[in-house]
Design a protein around this nucleic acid. Structure first.
Length: 462
DNA sequence: TGAAATGTTGGGGCG
DNA sequence: ACGCCCCAACATTTC
């Protein structure tokens, strides 16, 4: 009789789960699946939208486990002592988990591994979250890539990712002797006290089954036209898999396999490229952990960001008077998600037209996105602000009106999220309304040409 | 995975 | 027929 502990973290699935598969292959006759409630110190604590998602994803995982005669044990408190108690109570001889890559998480996992191994416990960790782990893709001189295109080309030369592991037919039961002191998922307190989450529930289905359904639906439908339609927030041309990928309800290997089975067109390659932006972001944060708070380009440490609470608040609430910006920010607030084209545009508006620090925007996204991912969020914001890897030159300033006319040509996206403008037909919704307009929609926070000019002058100063 | 300013070209209207 | 101007369309440069 051997008992194994399986730690779930951001790999909330049973299929293609290498740690689970290894525990089974090693012959565990008892399996204790756990979720550790404590978040690693050093990384920012999860935002409210992520916590909402996690609650439902853990519930779905627990249901999936129970259907197979198992269950999820929630473990609170400092991980090492908590695991030691659990090992003592269950007689477990081995602990399995899938690796994380954020600075705080890697440090915490390293300490946990050392502590457990010091106790004589067998610890095995695996890659479940990436096609290539950060240390596996380096330049010829051993340095990490800082520019996406060479990184992407290099990845394409790598051997294709291994086929996903199958869903285990059955699971070993949990140890009988274990006192089920674990608390219910609700006791983690992940759900908000004020019920702002009703909008989220209407558009998402957290959990492995929801993720698989979404992937199938995407591959059979929008994928073929992804290259042409991926920039259109008014259409349903993207996968919306990001939160599922973040929580590991689906693996990039599974996505990769689904893409390679897709027929014809350049949609699959365009989508794969996005998957590799995710890989690139994780590699960058791993190799440059200081980008958690600091710009990768040190010149931007002395960039003259402004401080303007009122403007920041208007941006957050979607009351800037710039229709595309407000539509995006309201979509985010109501659904926990925003189309990527619109993310770029609202980020450009914050960091350039408003000259507010990218950290303020990243922090709001972190709190409100259901797909909030440290690596992706940091890369995205620093890319837009011009201070990150492969950064857009600072003078690349999105004009939110032009972007709206180009990517929301009929104005449907704006009207969906900004009801004040529903009386305006077609692309005429995109230019800001003058002060005193009767729509109830605010006049623009900044005049776009003047904001652009001010941003260019700030750039010239560094 | 910009936008605006500036430069170039070529067709057509017109004296 | 010719030169001149205008201007859209496209290309290049600059921020």
């Amino acid at each position: 009789m051997t008992t194994a502990i399986l730690l779930f973290r951001r790999d909330l699935r049973l299929a293609d789960n290498p740690a689970l598969a290894a525990a089974l292959a090693d012959g565990a006759s008892r399996l204790l699946p756990c979720y550790l409630g404590a978040e690693p110190a050093g990384d920012p604590p999860m935002g409210a939208a992520s916590r909402w998602w996690l609650h439902h994803s853990l519930t779905a995982l627990d249901d999936d486990l129970r259907r197979r005669g198992s269950r999820l044990l929630l473990v609170e408190g400092d991980p090492l002592p908590a695991l030691r108690r659990l090992i003592a109570a269950s007689g477990a001889g081995a602990v399995y988990w899938n690796r994380r890559y954020e600075p705080g998480a890697t440090a915490a996992d390293r300490a946990l591994k050392q502590g457990l191994q010091g106790d004589g416990v067998r610890v095995r960790s695996f890659n479940a979250a990436l096609l290539n782990e950060p240390w596996a893709v380096l330049k010829g001189d051993g340095a990490p890539y800082r520019v996406f295109t060479p990184y992407w080309r290099r990845c394409l030369r790598e051997p294709p990712p291994a086929a996903p592991l199958p869903l285990p037919a059955e699971l070993p039961p949990p140890p009988e002797a274990l006192p089920w002191t674990g608390r219910a998922i609700a006791a983690l307190g992940l759900l908000p006290a004020i019920r702002w989450d009703v909008g989220l529930a209407a558009c998402w289905r957290p959990g492995e089954a929801g993720a698989q359904a979404l992937l199938r639906q995407f591959v059979e439908g929008p994928l073929a036209d992804y290259a042409e339609r991926r920039d259109r927030p008014d259409l349903s041309g993207v996968s919306r898999l990001s939160p599922h990928l973040h929580f590991g309800e689906i693996s990039p290997r599974q996505v990769h396999q689904a893409l390679s089975g897709a027929t014809g067109g350049d949609g699959a390659e365009a989508f794969l490229r996005q998957l590799y932006w995710r890989e690139f972001a994780h590699a960058l944060l791993f190799h440059f952990p200081h980008t958690l708070e600091h710009p990768l380009d040190p010149r931007f440490e002395r960039f003259p960001w402004r401080r303007d609470e009122a403007a920041l608040r208007a941006w957050q609430r979607g009351t800037t008077g710039i229709p595309m910006v407000d539509a995006g920010m309201r979509e985010l607030w109501h659904t926990g998600w925003m189309h990527n084209r619109v993310r770029m545009l609202v980020a450009s508006f914050l960091s350039k037209h408003l000259l507010l620090p990218w950290q303020a925007g990243a922090s709001w996204f972190w709190d409100t996105l259901v797909d909030a991912d440290l690596a992706n969020n940091l890369l995205g914001w620093q890319w837009v602000a011009g201070c990150g890897a492969d950064a857009a030159p600072y003078f690349r300033i999105f004009n939110p009106v032009t972007q709206g006319e180009r990517f929301d040509p009929a104005g449907d996206y704006v009207r969906r999220w900004v009801p004040e403008l529903r009386g305006i037909k077609g692309a005429a919704v995109h230019p800001p309304q003058p002060g005193g307009s009767l729509t109830g929609y605010p006049p623009p926070l900044v005049e776009l040409a003047a904001g652009r000019q001010r941003a260019l002058e700030a750039y010239a100063r560094i």
